[in-house]
Structure formats: C-alpha cells, structure tokens
Design a protein around this nucleic acid. Sequence first.
RNA 1: GUGGAUGUAGCUCAGUCGGUUAGAGCACCAGGUUGUGGCCCUGGGGGUCGGGGGUUCGAGUCCCCUCAUUCACCCCA
Length: 419
Amino acid sequence: MRTELKRPRGTQDLLAPESLRVERFRRLAFDTARHYGFDPIETPAFEQSAVFLKVGESTDVVQHERYAFTDAGGVELTLRPEGTAAVARAYVENGLYNAPQPVRLFYWAPMFRRERPQALRYRQHTQFGAELFGVEDASADAEIMLLSTAVVIRAGLSHPVIRANSLGCSLCRPAYRSALVQYYEGFRGQLCQDCERRLDQNPLRLLDCKVDQAVREGSPDLSLFWCPECRRHFERVIELVGATGRLIERDPHLVRGFDYYTRTVFEVGHPELGNGTALFGGGRYDGLVELLDGPKVPGVGFGMGSERLLAALGTRLSASSQPSSYVAYLPGFQGQAWIVAESLRVRGLPCQTDLLQRSLKAQLRDASRRVQYVLIVGGEEWAEGKLTVKNLESGAQHVVSADPDDVAQVLVHEGALGL
RNA sequence: GUGGAUGUAGCUCAGUCGGUUAGAGCACCAGGUUGUGGCCCUGGGGGUCGGGGGUUCGAGUCCCCUCAUUCACCCCA
C-alpha cells in the first residue's frame, strides 16, 4: 500500500507490545504519585499563548518551538510545550491557593515542541510530572526528588543519581550573573559560536558548554554568591534527600532551560542514553504563580519524559502478559462458541473468538499466536454437555464440562489439572 | 536553525556495466489433514523501487530538486 497520509514528522505510532509497556509504566507512575499524596490533574492540550509566553520569554521552547495557531474566533492558542506553566495556571484559575496547602498535583500528558527530531526527541512526547505548591521549605524540593526517583526505582532502575544545583534567588542571582558575564567578556572572540551567542542571550547556559570547558574552569563559582538563605536551603535539600539513602550530588554546572526556576534545579540522567540526554529534571519556581496573576505562592516540580524513561529501562520493564483464552469451534458451532466466550468474559476472564468463520485448523493457528488456552466447541463433546480445553504451550488437552462456571474454574486452576 | 547518512513488499535486505515481466528470507492467507496450532511441503496475495523532473533507444541503477527517516549540534523530556 502506498499513501501520502503519513504521520507528521517527529511523531510516532505506538503499537503493541510497546504500547503495553507504556501503559504499564503509566500505571506505575500514577500509583507512585498517589502513594506520595499527589492528586491527578488534567489540563487542556492547548492554552492561551500568553500562558507560555509570560513564563518563558527567553527560552527556546516557547520562543522558537511553539505550535501556535489562531482559532476562528481570533484567539491566540499554543499547544502545550511543557507542563508546569499549564498546571500553575490551573492552580491560580481554580483558586487552589485557598485549598489546604501544600497542594500536590501530578499529570501524564502529551507535550508539543517543533524541534528537529533525533534520538529520543520528538515533536510530540509524553511527560509524567508533578508539582508541589505552597511550601518554601527545602522539604518540598526533597519530596519532589524522592517521588521522581521513586518512580524510576520502582520501574527497575536501581540507583539513580540526582545532580542538583541552586541558581540562587532574585537577591543573589543577579550578582552572579554579572560576575559571570564580566568573566566571559574577557574571552570574547575566543569562544565557540554557541557560547558567543549564550554570552548575550542566556549567560547561565555558558556553564554547560561542552566545548569551552577550559574557559569554564576559571569561571566564578555560583555557590560563592548564594545568599545565606539560599545556601541553607540548598544544604537542607541535600541533607533531607541524602538521609533517605537516595544518591544526590551537587553539579556546579547544572542550569536548566526555563526562566522561572529559582534556587533548586536538578536532573537525573542515564548512561545508556548518552551524557546530554536527561531522563528527567525539575526545580523550584517561587515566582511563577505570581507571574500568572496568582498570589505569592512558592512551588517546585519535575517533568519526566516517558519515551526516554522506557528506553532507559529497556527490558527491565516488559509488557505485562496475562494468560488469555480463545474459543474455537467446529463448523456450525459459531453461535455456541460466541456464548461460551462471552460467559467467560462476564466472569472476568479474558477471552476471544474467531469472527471470520475459519476452519478449525486456521482458528488454532490464530489462537496459538494470540493466547495460551483454547477451548474447542462442537461435535460429540458438545452433545454431551462438554468441550475441550487445550494448553497451546504444552499441547495437553482435556474434555471438561461446558457449564460456564466449570469452564471458568478450569481456566483459573488449569495448573492443578496438569494442562 | 546547522551538518552528515539512508530511502526497493508489512519487516530485514539482495538487485552486477544502465538492458526483457524487480527478487529472497521472515510475516500474512489457503491447501496438503471437511475434529487440532507450532515442524514440513505446495500454492497465493502483497511493489506505481519515497515523490517530481532530467539524461538516455532504455533508469531501481546516473544527475538535479523535493519529501521522509535517522544521527549529531543547538535546545530539551
């Protein structure tokens, strides 16, 4: 078949068994978040463009990579490129600052960014994320780190290492920023092309350049500029997380892409994904709610890309399979098979049956590719109120009562019958 | 946005120097066995060789453009 109707660039069709792994991970993430007291939140796939524009003035994600459109009513809308701004908007709009604090929210949602696709980078990807509002104390940062790592640990990655840093607050960051700019100005003209641009547009990004590392070595240390409160906050985060046995270390060069981060930022990577590709990351955003017309409420959160996480997990998280059954029939017995199949399903047992009026041989071939147990309906057994149960893996088969309750019981306890 | 690689069946790939009707394996369907899957045998369906243009008597093959995939950079999940 030839068609021009292909999926848009950078998107993907997810088929079994991959789609089953995703669903399994989604449930695991959902469970874990609930375990920490977080409630699910769903926000629209698109927002007024202003929501993202306000929040990410200088970031590539909202500056160059937005899927934006004007609807028939003239409203400027943008497909959600990231979760935090949307959730913060919902926090304000729904008056959650009047709810008992802290407010703990999590989401599982598609994100849209018009980037050039490459390994594990898509124009539509899925993020599991959580946001915690209303706590300025370092324990909130620590709880977010615990939740995010708990998810990957439960999924099968044993010892994630959190790399963390503090970007300081509105009191101490400006001083550092100008010291950094002043230092790098001395190397103007000797830097890589990207760094020349960073120097003007986003100086903090100079810190994670992979080329000009020698220049970076002599750059001023961010931690020397932290105000006492920021210092105490960061040390407390390290202490609280470390106390639980999680691995956390300071990465003095870690900065992150969104403007709204204050103080804590963190990332977790994975060796199998290459050095630059973060599994997930997050941080604190104490000014964000206010920026979105809300009261002065602090917040902290993370976002985790499910595609990257599933890739890092590899076979550690496999598609769950539960034994299933298939009702095959002899010519003329499709009606009876139909009823047997449904009687099993209403008893909670997975079951399918042939819809194509195929030969028994074809049905068995089909069944052997799909399920572990096949029931054969028809002929002499059926006349005696019986049917055949066959285990397609072992080849063993028995004739049993065709009463639906009996059949269900046999399937549940088939091990005991030596099938 | 920048740079590289690759596009032939559902999948993985052959296809010689430009030459007849484009092949294989796997997968799918049917039959061999009108009551038994997997192994085996036989047969079948499925391709405008990514698309467009050009060179040529003749293009899957050579040239140009384009689209897509993929990898890296930027950035990010």
